[in-house]
Nucleic acid binder design. Sequence first.
RNA 1: GCCGACGUAGCUCAGAGGUAGAGCGCUUCCUUGGUAAGGAAGAGGUCACGGGUUCAAAUCCCGUCGUUGGCUCCA
Length: 650
Amino acid sequence: MSSQNIEITLPDGSVRSYPSGVTGMQIALDISEGLARNVLAAKVNDEVWDADLPILSDSRVALLTWKDQEGKSTFWHSSAHLLAEALESLYPGIQLGIGPAINSGFYYDVDFGDLELSADELPKIEARMVELAREKNTYQRTDVSKQDAIAYFKEKKDKYKLELIEDLDDGTISFYKQGQFTDLCRGPHIPHTGFIKAVKLLNVAGAYWRGNENNQQLTRIYGVSFPKQKELLEHLALLEEARKRDHRKLGKELELFAFSEKVGMGLPLWLPKGTRLRERLEEFLRKAQVKAGYEPVITPHIGGKNLYVTSGHYEKYGKDSFQPISTPHEGEEFLLKPMNCPHHCEIYKVRPRSYKELPLRLAEFGTVYRYEQHGELHGLTRVRGFTVDDAHIFCRPDQVKEEFLKVIDLTLFVLKALNFEKFVAQLSFRDPEDHEKYIGEDAVWERAEREIAEAAAEKKLETVTEYGEAAFYGPKLDFLVKDALGRTWQLGTIQVDYNLPERFELEYIGSDNQKHRPVMIHRAPFGSMERFIAVLIEHCGGNFPLWLSPEQFAILPISEKYHAYAETLYKAFVEKGFTGSVDHRDEKIGRKIRDAEVNKIPFMLIVGEKEEQAQLVSVRKHGTGDLGQMKWAEFIEMMQKEIEVELKYN
RNA sequence: GCCGACGUAGCUCAGAGGUAGAGCGCUUCCUUGGUAAGGAAGAGGUCACGGGUUCAAAUCCCGUCGUUGGCUCCA
C-alpha cells in the first residue's frame, strides 16, 4: 500500500487528491452516496475500468452510470455474463462462444450441442437470470496465466473459449467470476449482478462462430436489460411502436408499394399512392436544385461494359453484379447501371470545358441496379433496383469547399423540411495508418479533408470523425439521421472523388490556358428514394405531412343526396392541385370517417344538408377530430397555409 | 450465399393424415344514416411450386421459389 497521493481530475475539471490505489467506487462514495449507488464503471484516462480497480497514478476519472453509453455497454456486457450463468445452470454441458454488449442490449453465442433451443424457453431463462441477479453476486476479476486459462477451459471442455485463448498473449488474460460462473473476459463489469433489475430475451438466431460460414453455427440469444423495470417497459413499448411503424407493414396497408415474386425479389413496384408521394419528394428536390444551380440530365438504364471498365466498377464489382446483357447478333455487352457517375462523366466530356463554366452540377434521379445477396434484402431499405437522387458536381480544386457548403445547405434544407431534426454529420476520413488503400495524392486528400471539416464546422454541424471510413476514391460527409423513435439511419451523403476524373481523363482549360483535372463531388441528400421513403414512413408512422400525403382529403357525403355537392367540391380542390377522393359508398358517416382515419387521410370533409345549403364543409382532421364548419374556399386556404408552414424553409 | 422460422381467400390469421375455416375486404339487396365498424345474402382457395411416402397429404419427407429473424457491434 502506497502512502503516496495521486491527483484525480474529474470531468468538470475539478481536481481531488486521493491515496494511490483509490478505486472509482471510493471516489464516487466521496462525492455522494447517491452517485456511488449508481456507479457502473469508471472511465480512467479514456479507458473503461471496473469501479473497484485501484487507480495508481494521476488520472482523469469519469464515473459511469446508466446515463453514459459506456455505462450502458458495461451493464449489458455484464448482463451477457448473467445470461451465460443462467444458461449453464439450466443446460449443463453447453459450450459458450462470445457474449458482447451491442448497441441496444447484448447477446451470447451458445453451442447447445444436440439440444434445440426454442423461443418458448426464453421466459424460463429470463426468470433464472432475474433470480441470479437478486443474489447480488460481484463480478470478480482475476488475472490468469495463459497456461491456467487453457487448463480451466480444457477441464470445462469449451473449445470456443480455448480457441479464443489461443490468440491471446500470456499476461493479458483475465477471468471474471460471478456466482458459480467464470468466463474468459477482458472486462470491465458492473460491481454486482443486483444492478440488473429487468431482463428481456428478445430472439434467437443462428450465428457462425467468428462470423465465418464455414464454422460451426451457434445459437445466438439476443437480450436487453435495465436497472429499472420501468425502463424495460418503455423499451418494449418502443419496440412495439417500431413494429407498428414498420414501413413494410404500412406500405402494404396504405398501398404505397408492393413486391411481386414474378417481377423479382428486391424490385419494388410503386403503387399509385406511393408514386404520388415519391414524385412529390422528387419535385421538391428538383425545385430546390434548380435554385441551387443544378442542371437536370437523363441517362439510360444500361451502359456499355467498357464504360464500367473505364470507371473501374467492372473490375471491382463486376463479379458481384448482375451479369452483362448482350445484343443478339453482335454480342456487344451492356451492364445494368450500378452507378450514375460514369454516364455523367461522359456528359462532362461531350465537349471541352472551360474553368469559367465550373462548377458544373449535373443532377438526375437515376435508377440503378445492384446485385444484393438474397439474405441482405429488406423491404425498401435494401433492394436490387433503386433510384438515387444523384448529382455530380464537377469543380476546380479551389471550389471544393464552397461546393461542400452549398451541398450541406441543400441537405439541411431537405432534412428540415421533412422534420428530421436530429442528426450528426460523420466525417469519413482516411485511415491514417494506411494511405496505400486510397488513390490520390496526400496533399490533395489533406486539403479535401480539412475543407470538409471546415465546411461542417462553418455550418455548425454536430460531427463525429471516423478514420478509415472514407471511400477509396475520396473522403465523405455522411448524414446520420435520428428518426422519431431514436433510431439512426444513414441517409444523405456527400463524397469527394479524385478517382473518376482521373480514369475518365476529365479536363478543363484553366485561366492559364493549361489543361487541369477537375474534382468530382457525388452527393445525394435523400440517399435513395426507396430507402429515404422507408425511413420517412417509419419516422412519421405513415402520417405524412399534408404536402406529401398521397390522399390529402376525403369528401364524405352524409348520404347519396349530397353526392353532387361533393363532386363540385372535389373538382374545386383538384383544380387547386390537391389530391383526394369522394367516398360514394352506401355507408353511414361513422363508417366513412373510420375508414378515412385508418387510411391516415389528413382532412375529412363531411358534407350533408347544412353544408350544401350554406356552401360549407365540416372539417375533421386526422388524429385531431372535428374542426367545425367553414366555407369551402376557406378550407382550401387552410390547406395551402398548412403546406406553406410545412415548407417554410423553401 | 449460409442457418432457423414461415408461406392456407385480396388482407390478418386458425386448422396439423380422412375431401377447406373465421374476421375484415369484395359483389348484390335492404337501409338515406351527422363525426372511428347498420343489416342480410353471395362470390371468392391446385392450402407457394415440383417431386416422394400413404388406400388417402394443406398436414409427413425431399427439392425449388418467395417472405422473414440472424450471420464479430470481436473474450
